[in-house]
Write a protein that binds this DNA or RNA. Structure first.
Lengths: 194, 194
DNA sequence: TTGTTCAATCAACGCTTGTTGAACGAGAGG
DNA sequence: CCTCTCGTTCAACAAGCGTTGATTGAACAA
């Protein structure tokens, strides 16, 4: 009964409603993507009127940005082996818990131009760091392949819900992925040409 | 001058128009996905009226199916090494020339339920064949990871147009991918746990 | 109490979408 | 010549979309 809710009940109610809208929007953007998610559906799921969503977030695009804006990831530095482990740790984390912001962005990355743009910006730094750690002549291609593997795994697991990946634990997946990524981040074992 | 166009000029014209519509639809579905591609845009790109597109293909969904229906791929069989090479050959082919049907399907696979369903059906057989070739206890997870890598590479290259991958030749990419896929298809080298 | 603020609702707008059915007009068959 | 076929266009529909502005009613301040 003596809980710390002494604040003006007005602002508290507003914050709660706004949070409910954001949660509903996140869920719908993750599940259905940008185009198939309507302001009306978000409002219905949050138990409010569509006009209120507009009043709070300005536009559908702005709401999408609020949902998908992620805190910047920590830098990738060190030897290729260390960078590989950092990437694996990141993948393990994303396999363990649903990365809401990333998934909302990923779901629309192929069909919503603004999502693709944000995604690009995010992976550019990623590429540069990986490429720098590899330091070989074909480091750019290798870094792009590392990103491609990462993308494929997360998309298969969380968005396409591939049965083989959804049932497996993060530990097993990262263990299987380790030699795969190591072969990409280390510039020996050139691959049998021809 | 003596070309074999003796056929009734009526049906010939029709076939040509239908082909123009299909080509325009393919391009738009690949570039913009299902939702953002409108019947009117397809008609405009093909130089015809929107009603004609409906009259020829019945519905937008039916047009999408016509564009994305692919001839069934050859079976994957043999030792894990052989299967790996077959997959690599397939990837190389898809990197060399734009695989229109697959790209039209892939672009919408995250946002169009029917596209996701068709994709699922296609990858199920794929998974079974790879998993059978591996034959280990965790073959399902390994097969799913092989598919994930394949997905990530094609998507990054053709749809997200990752600079590092778009500039590289198919030969280099498959050479880099070979050890990566071999580590997934062969059940030795368990990966350093911990 | 009286007046102000503001979360929330409501009805409507302009626009685009997929889809339809009537209409037109040039070629084929007699 | 006339007639039928059929590729093609045109105009319109109903539904859904994002977005807006007026309006309501309850919590606050005086």
């Amino acid at each position: 009964m003596s809980e710390p809710e002494a604040r003006p009940a007005r602002a508290e109610q507003r914050r709660a409603t706004e949070a409910r809208i954001l949660a509903a929007a996140s869920r719908l953007f993750i599940d259905n993507g940008y185009e198939r998610t309507t302001i009306r559906a978000v409002a219905r799921a949050a138990g409010v009127d569509a006009g209120l969503v507009m009043h709070y977030f300005g536009s559908k695009q702005a709401l999408f940005q609020r949902v998908t804006q992620a805190s910047p990831m920590p830098e990738l530095t060190g030897t290729p082996e260390e960078v590989t482990e950092q990437i694996l740790a990141r993948i393990a984390q994303m396999l363990a818990v649903e990365p809401a912001q990333s998934l909302a962005l990923l779901r629309s990355v192929l069909t919503h131009p603004e999502a693709a743009e944000v995604w690009q910006e995010g992976t550019d730094r990623y590429h540069a760091e990986i490429s720098h750690a590899i330091g070989a002549a074909d480091a750019d291609v290798r870094a792009a392949l590392v990103s491609a593997v990462w993308l494929g795994v997360i998309v298969s697991r969380h968005l396409l819900k591939s049965p083989g990946l959804s049932d497996a634990g993060p530990q097993l997946v990262t263990d299987l992925l380790r030699p795969c990524l190591r072969s990409l981040t280390r510039a020996d074992l050139p691959g049998t040409t021809g």
